[in-house]
Simulated assay, not measured.
Amino acid sequence: MRTRGTGDACATYNQFSLGADYAVSKRTDFYLVAAYQHASGDQRDTNADGTNGGLGEATASIGSYGNQSNTNSQVIVALGIRHRF
């Protein structure tokens, strides 16, 4: 996935995601999801009060996980077991 902004805040985000699912029974499975993101360019910083600030170096932030990195790259891995009742 590639996302690119334009204007004064022209950050580019390249992300690669991979997922797998393995059924061990009719109602139980194991799953694995992994993602890597690399950010480059500039993004608009947000001030503590939620208003827009100046430009800063783009930082990685993978999807809805909400864990913004302090660097321009981020890796996330989720491994779990799911049982349906």
Rank of each mutant, 00 (worst) to 15 (best):
residue 2 R to I: 07
residue 85 F to L: 13
residue 79 L to D: 09
residue 10 C to L: 00
residue 22 Y to S: 03
residue 6 T to D: 10
residue 11 A to S: 14
residue 71 T to M: 11
residue 71 T to I: 01
residue 84 R to C: 02
residue 60 A to S: 14
residue 4 R to L: 07
residue 38 H to E: 12
residue 45 D to M: 05
residue 79 L to S: 14
residue 60 A to C: 05
residue 34 A to W: 14
residue 45 D to G: 04
residue 62 I to A: 02
residue 54 G to V: 05
residue 3 T to R: 12
residue 54 G to S: 13
residue 20 A to Q: 06
residue 35 A to F: 06
residue 16 F to I: 09
residue 6 T to N: 13
residue 45 D to H: 02
residue 53 G to E: 07
residue 15 Q to V: 00
residue 35 A to V: 02
residue 72 N to F: 00
residue 28 T to N: 11
residue 46 T to W: 03
residue 41 G to D: 07
residue 26 K to D: 14
residue 11 A to T: 12
residue 17 S to C: 01
residue 5 G to T: 05
residue 9 A to C: 08
residue 13 Y to K: 10
residue 29 D to P: 01
residue 23 A to T: 04
residue 32 L to K: 01
residue 24 V to H: 03
residue 48 A to S: 14
residue 78 A to V: 13
residue 73 S to N: 15
residue 83 H to V: 12
residue 11 A to G: 15
residue 9 A to N: 15
residue 22 Y to R: 01
residue 2 R to C: 00
residue 3 T to Q: 08
residue 5 G to W: 07
residue 80 G to A: 08
residue 77 V to K: 04
residue 68 Q to A: 10
residue 27 R to D: 15
residue 72 N to E: 02
residue 53 G to T: 04
residue 28 T to G: 11
residue 66 G to D: 09
residue 57 E to C: 00
residue 61 S to W: 00
residue 81 I to L: 13
residue 23 A to L: 07
residue 49 D to P: 09
residue 6 T to C: 01
residue 3 T to G: 02
residue 28 T to M: 06
residue 37 Q to A: 02
residue 57 E to S: 11
residue 76 I to S: 09
residue 24 V to A: 02
residue 36 Y to D: 01
residue 26 K to E: 15
residue 3 T to N: 11
residue 19 G to D: 10
residue 56 G to C: 01
residue 9 A to T: 14
residue 5 G to H: 11
residue 40 S to W: 01
residue 44 R to D: 00
